[in-house]
């Protein structure tokens, strides 16, 4: 290859493929993207050899097996810039619910021959295994933010991705606060923006898809939730979704877990 265009690789680890689909759903941006970058490796089977090197690797999914823990090191070694995309890659994903339970028990219940299953006790973020250049949050990631991250990479600048609360997006779009006006518990004040405050605009509380915001005052928010009638069990559940293993969210759910 004599192309001077940077090369892009997209890697999949434990995930639902939703974030990779976001890449394919870029529509209007997909062709310009292909014009600026060589898509060298994409949607391949996990067994494909790594080779490379690649200028930019986008990594989807979390680390859940010893094999993947090894493979991510190879991917890192073959990538000049490595960006993780989505809640799985940045916090461990919904599959990190296993971190709060006994994986051995699951194996016994789910699989006829558990001895064939090789898995880790925890589902963890890519950054817990290798150095990551940028983490793009979301379950799934936001199309516009993905384009921004790739564009910023091409322009050698810092991406315009903010870490403040979802509330900023509610206010900018003029959404009426669901907590104040309807009494609906909302994770927006402790969740990082990026979705455009989608759920509150449909009168639902934020589910925390983009993980913890830059500042998380959990005792204050959880005591407000209790005033709004949220039970301890629901409090734990609301922080144990797609970003259950993100440290700030994990701390909250563990603090409210019933003591056995």
């Amino acid at each position: 290859m004599t192309s001077v265009k940077p090369t892009l690789a997209v890697w999949k680890f434990a995930s639902c493929d939703g974030c990779q689909l976001t890449v394919l759903n870029l529509e209007d941006d997909l062709l310009p993207l292909a014009g600026e970058i060589d898509i060298a490796h994409f949607l391949e089977a996990t067994r494909a050899t790594v080779s490379g090197p690649y200028d930019l690797s986008l990594v989807e999914g979390s680390i859940t097996t010893p094999h993947d823990a090894e493979r991510i090191r190879e991917v890192r070694a073959a990538s000049r810039t490595l960006i993780t995309i989505g809640a799985c890659a940045t916090s461990g994903g919904i599959q990190a619910l296993r971190n709060f339970a006994n994986v051995e028990e699951f194996l016994q219940i789910v699989y006829a021959r558990p001895e064939y299953i090789s898995t880790l006790a925890n589902s963890t973020a890519i950054a817990e295994h290798v150095p990551v250049d940028f983490e793009l949050r979301g379950c799934p990631i936001d199309k516009g933010q993905l384009v921004e991250v790739v564009t910023a990479f091409l322009a050698h600048r810092r991406p315009n991705i903010r870490n403040h609360s979802v509330c900023v997006e509610c206010k900018k779009r003029g959404t009426v606060c669901v907590t104040v006006a309807h009494g609906t518990p909302c994770l927006g004040p402790v969740t990082q923006a990026g979705c455009g405050a989608l759920c509150p605009s449909y009168a639902r509380g934020c589910y925390g898809c983009f993980g913890p915001a830059e500042t998380v005052n959990s005792p204050s928010l959880t005591s407000r939730f209790k005033e709004l009638g949220v039970s301890e069990a629901d409090l734990v559940r609301s922080f144990r979704t797609f970003n259950a293993n993100a440290p700030a969210f994990r701390e909250i759910s563990e603090a409210h877990e019933p003591r056995t």
Partner: peptide, 13 residues
């Protein structure tokens, strides 16, 4: 500071 969420709502409204 113990109560404030640093959520920005006060400033934006």
């Amino acid at each position: 500071a113990q109560r404030c969420l640093s959520c920005t709502n006060c400033t934006l409204v």
